[in-house]
C-alpha cells in the first residue's frame, strides 16, 4: 500500500524505558502492548553498565510471550562482552519472539565501565565503534551459517545503530538496518541520511537497505492543541538530550506527516518523556490520526520485524552455501 504522499508507509518505533528508579517489568509489558496496538514497528529498551537497571535483552525476552507482532530491540553493548555470547543472546531473543528481535548496538566508552570488567582500559570511541561493527559482522556470519541445518532459523535480528554520535556513523552505514538520526528539522535529518547513504555506497552497500528514523523526545503533557510558543508549533527544539517536541498529539501527527513528506526519514523513533501518559497519547492520538491519513499501517501484514520494516534478509552477503557470495 502506498500512502497518498507517494512515499512508503511510515515506520514508527517507541522507547519503553522507564523513568522510575527501579524497573517494573509489568510496565514494560503494558507499554509494549500499547505500542503494538498502535501498529508500531518496534520498541527499544536502552541499557548500560553505567547506571542502575536490569539487563534490557532479558526484559524484552520476558515481554516476548506477552506480545505477538511488535519488534523488540534492546540495547546491547559490544565493548566488554564476547561477540559469541552477544550473538547467541540476540539470536535467542529472535527465537523466543518468533522473528521479532533486533539489537541496538552500542559501545561502553567510560573508564568506570571498563573497571567493572577489569580487562582493558577505556579505548578511543572510533576504535570501539569499529569493534562494534565487527561484532555485528561476526553475528551475521554465524546466523548465516547456522541457518543451513536449522528447522527454526534465526530471522537475522535487525541491527539498529544510533547515528547521533559522529563516531557511530560509519558503523551505522556499513552494518545497520535501521539508523536513528537526530535533528530539529527535516533538513538536518536529511543531511545525515545523505551522509550515511554516501558511506554505505562507498562500502559497496545498497543505500536503500538502510532505514533512517528521526529520533525525537516527545512531551505530550500540554494537552490536545496547546504548545509552548516556539516549541510544539514551531517544531522540536534542541536540548541536551536531543530534539524535544513539546505539544499535543495532533500537532505531532502534523509534524510527522510534514517531515515524512519531505523524504528526510523513513519514520520516527519516539521517546516519551512520561512513558505511560505520552505513549498512550501517541498511540490513541498521533498514530490514530496518521492511520486515518493512510500514512501508517492499521494491522501487521507480516509477522517478523524484518517484514514490518520492509527489509530483506542480509544473508546473501555472508552466504556460505551455493557457491554465490
Amino acid at each position: 500500500m502506498t500512502p497518498p504522499n507517494g512515499r512508503g508507509l511510515l515506520h514508527l518505533a517507541a522507547a519503553v524505558d522507564q523513568t522510575a528508579a527501579h524497573d517494573d517489568v509489568s510496565v514494560h509489558v503494558e507499554l509494549t502492548r500499547l505500542a503494538e496496538s498502535g501498529g508500531f514497528d518496534f520498541v527499544t529498551l536502552g541499557d548500560s553498565f553505567a547506571r542502575p537497571g536490569f539487563d534490557a535483552l532479558a526484559v524484552l525476552a520476558r515481554v516476548a510471550p506477552a506480545t505477538t507482532r511488535i519488534g523488540l530491540v534492546p540495547t546491547v553493548t559490544t565493548t566488554h562482552t564476547e561477540p559469541f555470547q552477544v550473538q547467541a543472546a540476540v539470536a535467542t531473543l529472535d527465537r523466543v519472539s518468533r522473528g521479532r528481535a533486533g539489537w541496538c548496538i552500542d559501545v561502553s566508552t567510560t573508564e568506570g565501565e571498563a573497571r567493572l570488567f577489569g580487562r582493558r582500559h577505556a579505548a578511543p570511541v572510533d576504535a570501539l565503534w569499529q569493534e562494534a561493527g565487527q561484532a555485528a559482522e561476526v553475528a551475521a556470519r554465524l546466523w548465516a551459517g547456522a541457518d543451513r541445518a536449522d528447522p527454526h532459523p534465526v530471522h537475522h535480528p535487525v541491527r539498529v545503530v544510533d547515528a547521533t554520535d559522529r563516531h557511530a556513523r560509519t558503523t551505522a552505514a556499513r552494518y545497520a538496518d535501521v539508523a536513528l538520526v537526530q535533528g530539529t528539522n527535516p533538513a538536518q535529518v536529511g543531511a545525515i541520511r545523505a551522509e550515511l547513504q554516501a558511506i554505505a555506497l562507498a562500502h559497496g552497500r545498497d543505500p536503500d537497505e538502510l532505514r533512517v528514523l528521526a529520533a525525537l523526545t516527545v512531551d505530550l503533557g500540554d494537552g490536545e492543541r496547546a504548545a509552548e510558543p516556539g516549541h510544539g508549533g514551531g517544531g522540536p527544539r534542541q536540548t541536551a538530550q536531543g530534539p524535544l517536541y513539546r505539544g499535543g498529539p495532533v500537532d505531532l501527527a502534523e509534524l510527522i506527516a510534514a517531515w515524512h513528506e519531505t523524504g528526510a526519514a523513513d519514520g520516527f523513533h519516539l521517546t516519551p518523556v512520561e512513558p505511560r501518559r505520552d505513549l498512550e497519547r501517541l498511540v490513541n492520538g498521533t498514530a490514530a490520526l496518521l492511520q486515518h491519513r493512510g500514512l501508517l499501517r492499521t494491522f501487521y501484514p507480516g509477522s517478523t520485524l524484518r517484514e514490518h520494516l520492509g527489509l530483506g534478509r542480509p544473508a546473501h552477503r555472508y552466504a556460505v552455501t551455493g557457491g554465490t557470495s
Binding site: 516476548a64 555470547q85 547467541a88 543472546a89 535467542t92 531473543l93 523466543v96 547456522a146
Partner: peptide
C-alpha cells in the same frame, strides 16, 4: 548450556519462560 552456534542461550530462554 550454550555449547555451539545456533543453540539457544539458556538465560534468555528462561526469561521468556517467566512469562508462561
Amino acid at each position: 548450556d550454550l555449547d555451539a552456534a545456533g543453540r539457544p542461550e539458556p538465560v534468555t530462554v528462561l526469561n521468556a519462560l517467566v512469562g508462561v
